[in-house]
Simulated assay, not measured.
Amino acid sequence: MKAKPDPAVVARQVVRELVLPDPVIRTSPDERHAQLVRVPTWMWLDRAMWRPVSKTAKVPGVSVTATAIPRAASWRMGDGATEVCEGSGTPYSSKFAADASSPDCGHTYMRSSAGQPDDAYTVSVTVTWDVEWHGGGQQGVIPGLQTQAQMPLRVAEAQALVVA
């Protein structure tokens, strides 16, 4: 009689086969426009990617399902600051004041990106996923899968001109 495969071994194989979506970065002001020094920048990830992803493997004697769940987004803002957001972030909409800070995922630049390569900061985000698996009468968690994205973000400094 052949022994049943170890569900934990099958789970690790399923995790290797999971296809996690790449993060899609969104900002307000829109990333095509310059952010402004001392004006809050809102950041969020496309909500279509912020969802559980599952895969099931069936091998003779055992079936194992692994589900990857996005847990946090760690942002490197390019100016030396990092921000950690527990969710995908809140998209900006006109229901918020123009100078409002994001309720859950934002950053305020204190200096312009002038002098940086292409006069832009490189903003990057790393999404951390935990994988919960179950099958063959067992279950477990495999933490720490990551997906990443980056983009340039220009930050300008507005100058006020007082005319008497």
Rank of each mutant, 00 (worst) to 15 (best):
K2V: 12
K2W: 05
P7R: 02
V19L: 07
L20E: 03
P21R: 03
R32S: 15
Q35R: 00
Q35K: 00
L36F: 01
T41H: 00
W42Q: 06
W42L: 05
W44E: 14
L45Y: 15
A48N: 11
M49G: 09
M49S: 11
T56E: 11
K58R: 15
V59K: 10
T67F: 01
T67R: 04
I69P: 02
P70Y: 10
A72V: 13
R76T: 10
A81L: 04
C85H: 06
E86W: 04
G87L: 08
P91D: 01
S94L: 13
K95E: 14
F96L: 11
A97G: 13
D99W: 06
S101A: 13
D104W: 04
C105M: 03
H107M: 02
S113I: 10
P117N: 02
P117S: 03
P117A: 07
D119L: 00
A120Q: 12
Y121K: 04
V127E: 03
E132L: 15
G137V: 10
Q138S: 14
Q139K: 15
Q139E: 15
L145G: 09
Q146A: 11
Q148C: 07
Q150G: 07
Q150V: 01
M151N: 02
L153D: 03
E157Y: 02
Q159K: 11
L161R: 15
